[in-house]
């Protein structure tokens, strides 16, 4: 049987099909969680934002239109939720989190891999919030440039520019 698309699953859940939601949730739970964890930098806040984002999805399921990409809708909700959190939190929280990789597991593999991860984490911490979010939406969320632009509320060129700067800095950090 052909697998249903995200949009079909969401439409089915809007009609009361719980199994459709479970399937949809399984597809997006890990990427969304990682996006939020790296964005805010600490697991408890990421947990709150993660749960809050899904609750917003559940509450506003009737407002969802299958013509729009579910992934873009989900990440827009998560992005807006995170921005609300940053606005409510003290000004320091509006800065890039100090420990973007704090929620990541301790490197217990090869030393080189651990070192590269450490460098990647450091590079992520050094990114401006807009560039960080662009790269997270790209690598964790799997969104294209246009969707990143829509989610973050900027035009496509701005989103592309942010992503290009972020990639360059991360690449440089890994090659050092």
């Amino acid at each position: 049987m052909r697998e249903r698309t995200d949009e079909q699953l969401m439409a089915a859940y809007a009609g009361g099909d719980m199994q459709a939601f479970e399937q949809l949730y399984q597809r997006h739970r890990a990427p969304l969680y990682r996006y939020l964890l790296r964005l805010v930098g600490d697991a408890p806040t990421a947990n709150d934002l993660y749960q809050g984002s899904w609750e917003r999805v559940i509450r506003s399921r009737r407002g969802y239109r299958p013509s729009a990409s579910f992934r873009a809708w989900l990440y827009r909700i998560a992005h807006n939720h995170a921005m609300d959190h940053f606005r409510r939190a003290r000004p320091a929280a509006q800065q890039p989190p100090d420990s973007l990789a704090a929620g990541a597991p301790e490197p217990d593999q090869a030393l080189q891999s651990a070192q590269q991860e450490e460098r990647l984490a450091d590079a992520l911490r050094s990114l401006p919030p807009e560039q960080l979010e662009a790269v997270l939406l790209k690598l964790d969320g799997g969104l294209d440039l246009l969707t990143i632009a829509e989610v973050t509320g900027v035009n496509r060129e701005t989103a592309k520019s942010r992503l290009r700067y972020a990639v360059a800095k991360l690449k440089q950090a890994l090659e050092e």
């Binding site: 947990n47 990541a104 991860e117 990647l120 290009r164 690449k171």
Partner: peptide, 21 residues
């Protein structure tokens, strides 16, 4: 060019992306 840069990061990114809710 952007895609090439992203590819080089992805391999390291995946190894650090074992986090799940």
């Amino acid at each position: 060019a952007l895609e090439r840069g992203l590819e080089s990061i992805r391999s390291h990114w995946k190894s650090a992306s074992g986090d799940e809710p």
